[in-house]
């Protein structure tokens, strides 16, 4: 298992798509830092005088890509299902079409190959979503102070958001937990959702778009329901939690388990019993 997983990860890191998506992430960072409405658009002096709405001094906690509501933030988290799937979600399909899958399954048990593939796809999705956010977080620290946010002013996440108490007491812990337990896991889950479409779709681009399509359909369906969960579906990876009033931690858990469970069952079960012609 270790050898094939190592090979799969080597393929992830040597794929053009992986670096392309990280490049897109870098563009988001540049836009967020230096764009027209970026955090460094005004001089630091002016910004520090004005503060946030004239109340609190600017700090990392109001300016980080994950915590500053704005165009970059909205686009990044809306496109996350697509960004997560681009690097490696279509690799299972490509392996079948090229015949490379045959090379692998003749040398390792089928189940091992599918497990290694699933794990590599999961990690690829998690990495490409998390790394730009982490990089932006570090860069924000180069330009802005990190005063502890105050809940009383209500300038950042709302107080009934998941983990808000943690945010206002230990903001670093909140950010790292959100990055690694929400963004990383959902990034991986979206990539694996794309992988599960390997046996459903006949086009690698469609496979890469599959998680985004699924999310769009879910949003549409939820919009028809009386319970307004669609903002959560779009923004669940957003540490700012703009949907916070309507969800709890169980929403994250159910959503995550559903994505991982379905994609795991579909990809491994169908793969295990599928005949190999190419």
């Amino acid at each position: 298992m270790r050898q094939i997983f190592r090979l799969e990860m080597k393929r992830v890191f040597s794929s053009k798509e992986f670096w392309l998506v990280l490049g897109v992430g870098l563009l988001f960072i540049l836009a967020h830092l230096f764009g027209k409405e970026g955090i460094l658009a005004d001089s630091e002096f002016n910004r520090s005088i004005e503060g946030v709405n004239g109340i609190e001094p600017h700090s990392v906690w109001y300016s980080w890509l994950g915590l500053s509501p704005g165009t970059e933030n909205y686009l990044y988290f809306s496109l996350a299902p697509l960004l997560a799937a681009i690097p490696y979600a279509a690799s299972g399909w490509k392996d079948i079409k090229s015949g490379y899958q045959k090379q692998m399954v003749m040398r390792v048990p089928r189940k091992t190959y599918f497990l290694a593939k699933y794990a590599a796809v999961f990690l690829s999705g998690g990495i490409v979503i998390t790394v730009p956010l982490l990089l932006d977080f570090l860069l924000c620290h180069c330009f802005l102070p990190a005063y502890r946010p105050l809940a009383a002013y209500g300038l950042s996440i709302v107080t009934d958001a998941v983990g808000s108490e943690l945010f206002y007491t230990h903001p670093y812990l909140y950010v790292f937990l959100f990055l690694f337990f929400i963004d990383f896991l959902f990034g991986g889950a979206y990539a694996c959702l794309g992988l599960s479409a390997t046996y459903l779709l006949e086009n690698s681009v469609l496979i890469q778009f599959f998680p985004y399509i699924v999310q769009t359909i879910l949003v549409f369906l939820c919009d028809l329901c009386p319970f307004p969960v669609w903002p959560f579906l779009v923004n669940k990876m957003n540490p700012y939690q703009p949907y916070a009033e309507s969800v709890g931690a169980e929403h994250y858990l159910i959503h995550l388990l559903l994505f991982i469970g379905v994609s795991f069952a579909v990809y491994l079960r169908r793969g295990k019993y599928r005949e190999i012609y190419r």
Partner: peptide, 10 residues
């Protein structure tokens, strides 16, 4: 060792 149809490599 199996070579069926075309060889497949990276």
């Amino acid at each position: 060792g199996v070579l069926i149809e075309n060889p497949a490599f990276l």
